[in-house]
């Protein structure tokens, strides 16, 4: 019998495409098994892992669920931070809270994955979600709470039940991997939308010109992709695969994935004759079968975009940040 709830607790809508999903899973299951056995050899019984070319390659090919928490913690640097600050999370939980900040967070708790059985009721994961969001916002007071973080913490909690680890992963994301992204002025994240435009102009000028011609702003297309790191945008397994790379490599994977989302749909986009048609295509492509097949999609992100030299990205990023 087909379940209407997936392995992570998300209810499948009436329009869920079982056929595509089952075809993909039939293939993916053997890939998962092969990766799992390779990871077993790599990890053995160790409780931590050191960054290396091999580990990077392994992350790009996907981390088994059982190792995700440990590997994300180690390769991102969150593990080290947690060990250096063993009391921080507990103290933050007990500390006096800024009421208006907590009110803002509370407004979003029941608006976080209402279609997930762990978030749809007031017990379940809503309290851990509140704890982590509150602690992150209070520790990083200049940044406070940014809508969208609720979806990221939500997906982390579905995989990692340990609030303290989720807290340190968030702290590392905000301060080290994606510095300035969640600042109140939103400048960095806005500039990265422009950067996506520049990457498309560089990798596929025809598509760039077409999208510009119809005045579709990159900020409309990409804002949720970048703020939520694809949580609540792409299918959940695809998001975790992206995060396998994100925690190792940082923002670069976000550019690769967004560029691939645009470029692999170039024919559909070029066939559009209006603004509306283009935005409709963008709504459709985040759910179509090529995205469900996360393994092939990630492979394409690394193999089909050509080189992504960090120096060039940095230069483009600086230009984008200087725009008014």
């Amino acid at each position: 019998m087909r379940s209407n709830v997936d392995g992570y607790g998300f209810e499948r809508g009436e329009d869920f495409d079982y056929k595509t999903y089952e075809e993909f899973m039939a293939k993916y299951i053997s890939i998962l098994a092969r990766r799992a056995s390779k990871w077993e050899v790599l990890v053995q019984n160790k409780t931590s892992i050191v960054k290396s070319r091999k580990v990077k390659r392994f992350c790009r090919k996907g981390i088994p669920n059982g190792h995700r928490a440990m590997v994300w913690m180690c390769v991102s640097g969150a593990d080290e931070k947690m060990k250096r600050n063993p009391d921080t999370y507990k103290k933050l939980l007990l500390s006096q809270k800024d009421q208006s900040l907590m009110d803002t967070i509370d407004l979003d708790l029941h608006r976080t994955f209402p279609e997930n059985i762990y978030f749809s009721t007031s017990d379940g994961l809503r309290k851990p979600l509140r704890n982590v969001l509150g602690a992150v916002a209070h520790k990083n007071h200049d940044q406070g709470y940014c809508q969208g973080l609720n979806f990221i913490v939500g997906l982390l909690l579905l995989l990692i039940k340990d609030e303290e680890k989720v807290f340190w992963l968030m702290d590392t994301l905000i301060n080290d991997l994606l510095p300035d992204y969640y600042n109140p002025d939103m400048k960095a994240v806005k500039a990265d939308q422009e950067l996506l435009g520049e990457i498309i102009r560089w990798k596929d000028p025809e598509v760039y010109a077409h999208i510009e011609k119809h005045s579709v702003s990159w900020c409309l297309i990409g804002i949720k992709w970048f703020i939520c790191l694809f949580a609540d945008v792409l299918p959940v397994e695809t998001v975790y695969r992206i995060w396998d790379c994100l925690f190792y490599e940082g923002a670069k994977i976000l550019y690769r994935v967004s560029a691939m989302l645009v470029i692999q749909n170039r024919d559909k986009l070029l066939a559009c004759k209006s603004f509306t048609e283009i935005t409709d295509v963008f709504k459709e492509i985040v759910n179509n079968p090529t995205i469900v097949d996360c393994h092939t999609f990630l492979q394409k992100c690394f193999n089909e975009l050509g080189s992504f030299p960090i120096a060039r990205l940095k230069k483009l990023q600086e230009e984008c940040r200087e725009r008014p």
Partner: peptide, 28 residues
Amino acid sequence: TPYQNTIGAAYASARVKVHGKTVILNIW
């Protein structure tokens, strides 16, 4: 079902007919 918060902006469109004209509403 309860709604999710909107990040950035969402976009929807509808087509209506008024006074003999067809208008596409691009709703941000």
